[in-house]
């Protein structure tokens, strides 16, 4: 564990807490893409299958449970909660995310570290996480104005993988045989997808204005 990875995990946790706060405090999920939340639930379920087979540390196991439980709770809330689900922008959240799942599964079958069930699913989860934010970014552009909590949620979600890139650079230079090129390439793509959001987020922060994404 190094500081970059720890900061990345904390930033990721903060993004989830902000989303839970928004949904709980405002009893609304307007501006949030259910499809992105479903993709994240799939990412965590596919990646943390080793939760019961490989014990790495208490921290690692606890965080995996928190990520799986929170992502499923958010999906349940947006689908079933009688008050929250009424505020879901169903007509705006139309990204065909099934194509993302199919493409990532196909890529994972072609490119993975070892052709085993767990490794293919792990690579699938890494590829899917890189593109999971797309429905959310499309929804933000369509819904025009972005409320503060939603903007902060997306910002921290983008920042977490940027910390992980620093972690991979650090591990590359400090550990002899560290080679996580699948994670690194996907992590770079993932963070790059946030580039324009970060730009508009910075502009809105500098001008102290409302976050506006160009349609």
């Amino acid at each position: 564990m190094n500081i970059f990875r720890f900061l990345g995990d904390m930033t990721h946790l903060i993004s989830i807490l902000i989303l839970l706060l928004k949904i709980y405090a405002t009893k609304s999920c307007s501006g949030i893409s259910l499809k992105t939340q479903e993709l994240y639930a799939l990412v965590f379920l596919a990646r943390y299958l080793d939760l019961f087979t490989d014990f790495i540390s208490v921290y690692n196991s606890v965080m995996k449970v928190v990520f799986i439980a929170s992502s499923l709770a958010i999906v349940w809330c947006m689908r079933r909660h009688r008050v929250v689900r009424r505020s879901y922008d169903k007509e705006l959240d139309t990204f065909r995310h099934y194509f993302l799942v199919a493409a990532c599964l196909a890529l994972a079958l072609l490119v993975q570290e070892k052709f085993t069930f767990l490794e293919v699913l792990w690579a699938f989860s890494i590829y899917l996480e890189a593109v999971a934010i797309l429905p959310q970014l499309v929804l933000l552009q369509r819904s025009g104005n972005v409320d503060n909590l939603t903007g902060q949620y997306v910002f921290f979600l983008g920042a977490y993988r940027a910390f992980y890139i620093l972690n991979w650079i650090y591990r590359y230079f400090t550990e002899t045989h560290f080679s996580r090129w699948i994670s690194c390439v996907s992590g770079l793509v993932q963070t790059a997808l946030y580039a324009d959001f970060f730009y508009y987020y910075f502009i809105s922060w500098k001008n102290n204005s409302k976050l506006q994404l160009p349609a």
């Binding site: 990721h12 990646r47 490989d54 790495i56 690692n60 995996k64 990520f67 996580r180």
Partner: peptide
């Protein structure tokens, strides 16, 4: 086995 085999990252 080497660290990079074990998926020690979240």
């Amino acid at each position: 086995n080497s660290t990079n085999d074990v998926k020690d990252e979240l």
